[in-house]
């Protein structure tokens, strides 16, 4: 079973997910980056993909795997199979610019991920983000990127959910104020 799951035991699988929710990718990298070359070779061999296309598809798969881990959509079972299949699908998607569904298990990224992002706007939001304190950054990262519930964060930080709810409100307000200010300045 471990072999099917990149050497992970069920307990270490749980730890990996818990780490990702806290945006700690260290363990994930240890397990999955060493998988990169194998997947890259597989895609090149099976689909006669170029090195660059195989590289991009494998990178997309890593990103998508992280998302699915924290969404609770990946279960301990046969991660190796899923990873390879998803990489194949990513390769096809990138080539065809369209999504396909594979065996009912892998539904690819939805429309919102395909939206063109205004890098200027995103850049200004990033600058606003930099003005936040470390506690705000951590809270918003855990909540929005790690999909942690506020009650989970409260438990982790040994604070009450009410305190965390309020902190979140303040952090968002600060972020929006900064973003709004910069928008106004630009106008």
């Amino acid at each position: 079973m471990k072999n099917k799951n990149f050497g992970l035991s069920e307990a270490s699988f749980e730890k990996l997910v818990a780490d990702l929710k806290r945006n700690d990718t260290h363990f994930f990298e240890q397990v999955f980056l060493k998988q990169f070359s194998e997947t890259l070779k597989y895609l090149r061999r099976e689909y006669r993909a170029s090195h660059e296309d195989a590289y991009d598809a494998t990178m997309d798969t890593l990103i998508e795997f992280r998302t699915r881990f924290i969404d609770g959509k990946l279960r301990y079972g046969n991660l190796r199979f899923l990873f390879t299949k998803m990489a194949s699908q990513m390769l096809l998607r990138n080539k065809q610019k369209g999504a396909t569904d594979l065996e009912g298990q892998i539904t690819l990224i939805d429309e919102e991920h395909k939206e063109v992002i205004d890098t200027d706007e995103l850049g200004r939001l990033k600058k606003a983000w930099q003005t936040l304190g470390e506690s705000c950054k951590q809270l918003l990262t855990w909540h929005y990127y790690g999909k942690m519930k506020l009650t989970e964060i409260a438990e982790e930080q040994q604070k009450s959910p009410a305190t965390i709810r309020k902190q979140k409100e303040r952090c968002i307000k600060q972020l929006k104020d900064q973003f709004g200010l910069k928008t106004m300045v630009k106008l």
């Binding site: 998302t67 919102e112 992002i117 995103l122 990262t141």
Partner: peptide
């Protein structure tokens, strides 16, 4: 915020 931060991260 979820979408934007996801994109950034």
């Amino acid at each position: 915020l979820e979408q934007v931060l996801k994109k950034q991260f």
